[in-house]
């Protein structure tokens, strides 16, 4: 029997504890996207695994329930999506314009820039689904020949950069309507920017949530097309 950190029962509470601390830090920071609790927790757990020399497989076995529930939570997104689709009185045209342009620009600009700068093909493909919500982008990345863990990481980066830069870009372009801001943030930078959108206003946040769910579906259709046609 090894030290306590090799025990299968250790890593699930450790993950919850780390996330709890990271969430407290996120709240104290005034919910800065740079202090995103998921990002901080991943960094902390990764550091702990490297320090203790515990292989990822041991960790993964110990927290497999979270992986299962991640899929459950993705299915459950239908519930707030349904609620907001009913509540928001929007124009189908505005919604589809923002979704299509945002989604296509994210996939095309991301992959083409990386490809031009000499990224390996597997890495370029890992970039394609980065605007879908992380749980799903990872699966899309895997399906189209990318590396799921790399996609996972890049998706979080996209969330953080979109939440930080997005509002500045929108303000710089003179876009002030809650609907347009929410749609842009949710389409491109999923949950992390949706949290940011809710801090602007409830309405902005609800639009961001709808855009996030719908773009996750759209990316699952567009990313494989781009991967098949261009790479």
């Amino acid at each position: 029997m090894g030290p306590f950190w090799t025990d299968i029962l250790f890593w699930l509470p450790a993950t919850l504890g780390v996330f709890w601390l990271a969430s407290a830090f996120y709240k104290r920071s005034g919910q800065s996207p740079l202090a995103n609790p998921t990002f901080l927790s991943i960094a902390a757990i990764a550091a702990l695994l490297l320090l203790t020399g515990v292989p990822y497989e041991t960790y993964s076995d110990s927290v497999s329930i979270l992986n299962y529930l991640l899929g459950t939570a993705v299915v459950a997104l239908a519930i707030p999506l349904h609620r907001n689709l009913r509540r928001l009185r929007g124009d189908w045209r505005i919604l589809s314009a923002a979704l299509l342009l945002g989604s296509a620009t994210s996939i095309l600009a991301g992959t083409l820039i990386a490809d031009q700068l000499g990224a390996a093909t597997a890495i370029t493909l890992s970039i394609a689904p980065k605007s879908a919500t992380a749980a799903v982008s990872m699966e899309i990345g895997q399906l189209i020949g990318g590396l799921a863990p790399v996609t996972a990481c890049l998706t979080i980066m996209t969330g953080v950069t979109g939440a930080v830069l997005g509002p500045l870009v929108l303000t710089g372009l003179g876009i002030a309507q809650a609907e347009a801001r929410g749609l842009a943030l949710g389409t491109v930078s999923h949950g992390i920017a949706t949290a940011r959108a809710f801090s602007e206003s409830e309405l902005t946040g609800c639009w961001a949530l709808v855009a996030m769910c719908l773009n996750t579906i759209l990316t699952a259709i567009l990313a494989p097309l781009v991967a098949a046609l261009l790479f």
Binding site: F19, T38, Y59, L70, A135, M138, P149
Partner: peptide, 8 residues
């Protein structure tokens, strides 16, 4: 929270 293991 649920995404942490996948990210790690």
């Amino acid at each position: 929270l649920l995404f942490v293991p996948a990210g790690v």
